[in-house]
Amino acid sequence: MQVKTDEALAEAAILIASRRQTAALKGRAEEEKLWLYLRTLSYFVHATGQVYRFEDALTRTEPTEQRHVSARLRAHKNTLAQPAVELLLHTLGETPEPEQKPVLVLIALLNFIAETGQLDDVEDFFSHHLDHAPVAIAHFTRHEEAEAWLKGVAEPPSPARILIGDEYFQFWYDREDNTRGMYRDYPIEPALEALTARGIPSQRPSFATRAEAEAWLMSHPANPYSFVAIAGEHYFAVHHPRLQRHSLHHVASALSAWEERKRAVEREAALEATAPSDGTRE
């Protein structure tokens, strides 16, 4: 079912892109902003691992309720949610019934976020997500802790990123067959590569120990990245506001791992390009 939900959100994204472009071409800046806000809703549910939760909300919505707007949404003083739902209702009214599904999905998405008390979180995500590091929803000290959590939770958030130590991992869960797993992810390495290419600042905070660096960063959070020195080595500090912590990435090691990952991807692509198609296999 998650695949179907992703497909529905993808159809909604196509509608948003078209309507946003039209608003931009006609100089309707406020309307364009609202379409951008609606596009962010899908990013938010994916980044926070709530696709299945939204799917359940969709499943519970009767056809007669699809045009219903949550009372909690109408009562909320959020500066963007209310005009966004009014825009969707207007769009629904001018859209032929066979083409209304993406609009109804977006109304349901706004209702879901309102009913789960996340309107303020979405507003903050919309305003600041480009200034924040990629979202990690949990932190674990050791890999075994993350594995135990992933296996022990009845329905883990999916898909979502977590931190194990200072490394990002992507984890996933398939409700259909109850399979789940995780793999190493590299969402910040491109930013690290680009920033180091410009040169690591010569004036940067320097600390004797990691504990000293962490204590200083708590009162001087990176926004969202900054370089620090620990015991003479360069580190990349990444701020995770949701987790109220920083991860610290040894620059030389992180860049080396990223180069190896890029080489592995290139090797995989080359093998796929040279592999015979099914019709030519012997």
Rank of each mutant, 00 (worst) to 15 (best):
251 V>N: 01
149 W>M: 03
274 T>Y: 08
51 V>C: 01
168 Y>M: 02
243 L>V: 04
15 L>P: 06
49 G>F: 03
87 L>E: 03
154 A>Y: 05
76 H>Y: 06
124 D>P: 01
33 K>E: 15
149 W>I: 00
39 R>T: 06
180 R>M: 04
49 G>Y: 07
241 P>Y: 04
259 E>L: 14
247 S>E: 06
207 F>V: 00
89 L>H: 14
40 T>P: 02
278 D>Q: 14
93 G>R: 12
112 F>N: 04
111 N>E: 13
217 L>D: 11
177 D>V: 11
90 H>L: 10
88 L>K: 01
94 E>N: 08
134 P>A: 01
71 A>V: 13
88 L>Q: 08
42 S>F: 00
102 P>D: 05
67 R>Y: 10
85 V>S: 08
196 T>E: 11
25 L>F: 00
101 K>H: 12
241 P>L: 01
73 L>D: 11
221 P>I: 01
252 A>K: 13
69 V>Y: 08
45 V>W: 06
191 A>E: 13
40 T>E: 07
181 G>Q: 01
101 K>E: 15
7 E>M: 15
62 E>S: 15
117 G>I: 07
137 I>S: 02
129 H>E: 09
88 L>C: 05
248 L>K: 02
198 R>V: 01
57 A>Y: 12
14 I>M: 02
9 L>V: 01
109 L>K: 06
82 Q>A: 11
39 R>W: 06
84 A>R: 01
22 T>N: 01
2 Q>E: 15
95 T>I: 01
2 Q>A: 14
228 V>P: 07
267 R>I: 11
249 H>G: 00
281 R>F: 00
242 R>K: 04
131 D>A: 10
197 A>G: 03
101 K>V: 09
276 P>Q: 04
80 L>G: 05
3 V>Y: 13
